[in-house]
Simulated scan of single mutants.
Amino acid sequence: MTTVSTRTLSLGEVRALAKTVLVSAGMDASGSDLIAKIVTCSERDGPRSHGLRMLPVYAQSFSSGYANGAAVPKIEKIAPGVLRGDADNGYYQIAAAAARQELIALARENGIAAFTCANCHHLGGLRFDTEPLAEAGLVALAVINSLSMVVPQGGLRPVFGTNPMSFACPREGAAPVVWDQAASMVALMDIRMAAAEGHELPRPAGLDPAGNPSIDPEAILETRSLLPFGEHKGAAIAFMIEVLGAALAGGTLSVDNKERESFDALNIKGGATLIAIDPERFGNAAFGEYITRICAEIEGNGAARVPGDGRLKKRAAAEADGIEVSTGLLAQLDALAGV
């Protein structure tokens, strides 16, 4: 494995650096605050592939003119429990934050509510959109489709994006249960990080130029053909997210890359759906006890852990000790920030 020189940054320094890079790339004050926070939380909780390493991709989307750095999302109520958003060619997280309070109110009023959004970009973890809803006492499910690079089981070319999903629910006396995962075996940025750090992947995650499953990140990056997790089962999940994301919201299908290619961007203007459920309106007064019991059956069960809880240990360590960042990445980010 290649030895990588690093420097330790506090979370405050990570956020300040992210903010500077985003503003230098053309993002406005409010949008850059939100995305810088998400970048910092990714460095803090993981996966770090969605943290500082994502900043050059954000910057490219603005400098190329592909994304709107001063987007003003439009949110419209189109049914008693449905909000529809147009992100103004900006980042989805900004639109989701703008819709959050109304979505929470609609879920509490109706028992369930949904927010769909199109004309949006997304780079990062979806859990930052579900976790605030769980903190408000709601159950949340989020999906978004992305650039086609996942090959359907038995297929020869990519059809689906890594098509991430996130789930969150409140937990009595503790942080919410929150998990976030891609429909691919490994997220693209994790493969890029493995290539940058000079190590192989722990399991085959994509196809090499000969069409064989590979653990070599460089070979997978050459083909941009990733494998779905769980073989045909993961491909089915990716299909579902294509429907719930792009089709339901009216976003760009993962295979429609023409505009993206003209800007040499890493993402497409996909579609997102965020569903919020108020457990208090579903008739089970013991909902919280059920969650406690489920978690108790997992904890202490060998090496098992509640999905997403690994982030809490990472969070505590990062808050206490800071984050080690490669000096090569820092040099790249300083250049983008104009330092």
Rank of each mutant, 00 (worst) to 15 (best):
G308V: 03
A99W: 03
N284R: 09
T223H: 07
P176T: 00
R293V: 08
V159C: 02
L221E: 09
R84C: 11
I298W: 02
G245D: 13
N110W: 15
G124Q: 05
A183K: 07
R305E: 13
Y290K: 07
R108G: 13
R127F: 05
R15E: 12
A194K: 09
E289H: 13
L133P: 07
V255D: 07
A97N: 07
N284W: 03
H199A: 03
A235G: 15
L329C: 03
A286H: 01
R84V: 08
G310K: 08
G137T: 04
A235L: 00
P279L: 06
L333C: 00
F229Y: 10
G234I: 06
L133M: 07
A18G: 15
G270A: 09
P132Y: 06
I112K: 05
G308E: 05
T40L: 03
L201D: 06
P307L: 00
E299I: 14
F263Y: 13
N163Q: 12
A317E: 13
T252D: 04
L133G: 04
H50K: 06
I237T: 06
L248P: 08
S30W: 09
L17Q: 14
R100C: 12
A187I: 06
L11Y: 04
A97D: 11
N89G: 05
F263W: 01
G137F: 04
A59D: 08
S5R: 14
I104P: 00
A168N: 00
A96M: 03
R293K: 13
L274G: 02
C41F: 08
L22A: 01
K77L: 08
G155F: 10
G46K: 12
P56V: 00
A97Q: 11
G111N: 04
A210Q: 14
G251P: 12
E324W: 00
S49V: 01
R311Y: 09
R224S: 14
P47W: 01
A107D: 08
F128K: 09
L9P: 04
P56Y: 03
L266F: 03
A175Y: 07
I75D: 15
Q60H: 15
V72S: 13
R100Y: 05
A304V: 02
D334V: 02
K314N: 12
P307K: 00
R281Y: 00
E109H: 09
E231L: 10
D88R: 10
V150T: 11
D28M: 04
D45W: 10
K313F: 10
R100D: 06
S32V: 03
T327A: 08
G173S: 10
A59P: 08
I78C: 08
L17P: 14
N301P: 03
S63F: 08
E135Y: 00
D33H: 08
T3Q: 15
F287Y: 15
R305K: 11
V339A: 15
A219M: 00
C169Q: 09
V186C: 15
L207W: 02
V139E: 06
I241G: 07
A118E: 11
I215V: 13
L22H: 05
L336V: 01
S61K: 13
L253T: 09
